[in-house]
């Protein structure tokens, strides 16, 4: 993609010769993959719920599968956004819901019991990845609690705050194109603009 985009650059513009290390960590890439997985699964559940209910022996549960699809899409979008920590934890919560739903379907009278067992194993595996991802991004992107730096000595005014107050008023005039409307500009000689135009 980078090479393709070079079409839009001029001859003298620098072009990438050798890519370096990314700001994306390993855990960020895992989260991204899980986000896309979530979107894919969510779309499948939304568009083809009957395939799921048939395979899992849960006839009549199409609406439930569709709602889970919407949930997956929501989690996927969140996981792919800068708010990925929330997205990943929402996936972990969703996994727990999936486990409960599948456990309820893992009945002796379900002819597709074996499929349910497989699905449970798959969800457990994904849940482990989600937990690794959620804990990883939480750790990588959180602000450490407790110790913080103090900046109370950083006024930016070498001569002190008191001497800085209004210092620029002595030699700076607001340009004409940036002056405020009379209503909040200074009243002339402390007077009354309404009276002066009256």
């Amino acid at each position: 993609m980078g090479y393709l985009s070079n079409i839009s650059r001029s001859e003298g513009d620098p072009k990438v010769v050798h890519p370096g290390r990314s700001s994306l960590g390993g855990v960020d890439r895992l989260v991204r993959a899980l986000g896309w997985f979530s979107l894919g699964l969510g779309l499948a559940e939304l568009l083809a719920p009957r395939q799921f209910t048939r395979a899992l022996g849960m006839p009549g549960q199409e609406m439930l599968v569709r709602s889970y699809g919407l949930r997956e899409i929501g989690s996927g979008v969140l996981s792919l956004s800068p708010d990925k920590t929330t997205g990943l934890w929402s996936r972990v919560g969703g996994d727990a819901l999936d486990v409960l739903t599948l456990a309820a379907a893992y009945r002796a009278d379900n002819p597709k019991r074996d499929n349910v067992a497989l699905a449970l194993a798959a969800v457990a595996g994904i849940m482990v990845l989600d937990l690794i991802g959620a804990q990883g991004v939480t750790g990588r992107h959180r602000r450490a609690s407790g110790e913080r730096r103090r900046y109370s000595d950083r006024s930016g005014f070498p001569q002190g705050v008191q001497s800085a107050r209004g210092a620029a008023r002595r030699d700076f005039r607001t340009p004409a194109d940036m002056q405020a409307a009379p209503a909040t500009a200074a009243l002339p000689n402390g007077g009354d603009l309404a009276a002066s135009t009256g």
Binding site: G2, G12, P14, V16, V17, H18, P19, S22, S23, L24
Partner: peptide, 18 residues
């Protein structure tokens, strides 16, 4: 260099030219 969302890399690139 910008490579995509949240993906900035310190790349080797060609020198700029006048």
């Amino acid at each position: 260099v910008w490579h995509g969302k949240e993906d900035i890399r310190c790349d080797a690139v060609t020198d700029p030219r006048i």
